[in-house]
Write a protein that binds this DNA or RNA. Structure first.
Lengths: 232, 232
DNA sequence: TGTCAATTGTCAGCGACTGTCACTAGCCTC
DNA sequence: GAGGCTAGTGACAGTCGCTGACAATTGACA
């Protein structure tokens, strides 16, 4: 059992995350000041910066939680299965428990709405892209480990992960730009996009398009799955 | 002919860019203050922020120049040829004139060294990724226009451009992490990476790897070209 | 040459972030 | 259960990026 000191720290940290998310969602990221966040939790600004190295960090704290959980789940996965399938099934199977982990800190709706804020705030888009890059690197290392490959010699892990994470980003972007920002809509968007990844790469898509046949398999990577609304 | 006022503006702008690049390269981006930059050019800080909306913007001013020139060159390109080939040949043919455009503002070595700063400064990496995304969107629109396609219906322009720009980024990263940061080394790295793009996508790469055959064509996208030193 | 408009400098101020130091409150020992 | 130890907090002063407002300057043009 953890001590009182520890629990107190966790509480203030969670409170800061929750307050920050509420304010960001309510009035936007740029227009929310750190002073407003700490006022809502009633701690000093100095304390805020002891928990988070920047205002950006608190905005991505839940995203980071999700990334870490997912990465950990992939690491725990028993050997076997193709890498794409490992990533896909890990995603599907951990979705629920990761959702619960979020709920312990803030209502999941807040997390969902925060995605919209990120995707519409230029400075956050930039940071998000960098995080994705870092996440890709770690995932690629794990895939390489599982397959017994050397990341320096074999580019396939990185490529696989890049494709996977590209599809994830496309799904999130499509979902966050749409009408229904519910959890189930997100899950559906992500799962249907990801489900296309394997088939799209193995099937032959050159069914009479104007494009040369060598780009079509890759093209399917960002194709909208049927029934998904176009979001621009 | 442009008036004196106009020329004076151009001079101070170029001087700011040059001074900023010199300082960034010499002592790092974060540790260089805007006050140092304006002191080197002897203008007020307010003037700096009239030319550049942020410290980041001046750091990317030469990169932006290059992007714009390249995009413009693609736009000027007569119809015909496959999209990949159009991008590749435009790159090769405009390399020289773009270099000259840079030289009018700052020594090209400074531009080259600035890449290293960008690639090793987290906040600049993030901004760079966002710029790449924006550039991809514009290039994709142009490719779609050339091919008479609708970007909303056909994902292939975006995919093609994403692949192209991914290869470019990989090339730059490999080059900037290496020993030889000369212009010719950069050119060689970029051109050899890009040259692989077409063949890599059309060839069959499944020559007895452990991976499923459906990822190998994509895998070749980030493969190191022969003779290029590994840079991590 | 005098008027107009564009450009610049000065100043005051906000917001993100950091170093420092005194203080408070869990924790651990006797 | 008292007292020392230390992790965590608050208060304060200061730096740096960036902005608005207004006055001073300087090229443009009649």
């Amino acid at each position: 059992m953890t001590g009182l000191r520890e629990r107190k720290k966790q509480r203030t940290r969670d409170a800061l995350v929750r307050a920050a998310h509420e304010l960001f969602v309510e009035q936007g990221y740029e227009t929310t000041t750190v002073d407003e966040i700490v006022a809502a939790v009633d701690v000093s600004q100095r304390t805020f910066f002891r928990y988070f190295s920047s205002k950006e960090e608190v905005a991505f704290s839940l995203q980071r939680l999700v990334s870490e959980r997912f990465l950990e789940a992939v690491r725990q996965r028993p050997p076997g299965g193709s890498p794409v399938e490992v990533l896909r099934s890990t995603l599907v199977e951990t979705w629920g428990s990761i959702g619960e982990a979020i709920e312990e800190i803030a209502p999941i709706q807040l997390y969902m709405r925060m995605w919209q804020i990120i995707e519409t705030t230029p400075s956050l888009i930039a940071v998000h892209l960098r995080h994705s890059m870092e996440m890709e690197e770690q995932l690629a290392a794990e895939v390489a480990r599982r397959e017994g490959l050397d990341l320096d010699d074999d580019p396939r892990p990185r490529v696989l992960v890049a494709a996977f994470s590209g599809v994830m980003r496309a799904a999130i972007r499509s979902w966050s730009g749409g009408e229904d920002i519910s959890v189930s809509a997100a899950r559906q968007a992500v799962e249907s996009y990801v489900a296309q990844l394997g088939p799209a790469l193995s099937q032959d898509w050159s069914t009479g398009g104007t494009s040369p046949s060598h780009v079509v398999s890759a093209a399917a990577l960002t194709a909208r799955p049927p029934g998904t609304p176009s979001s621009n």
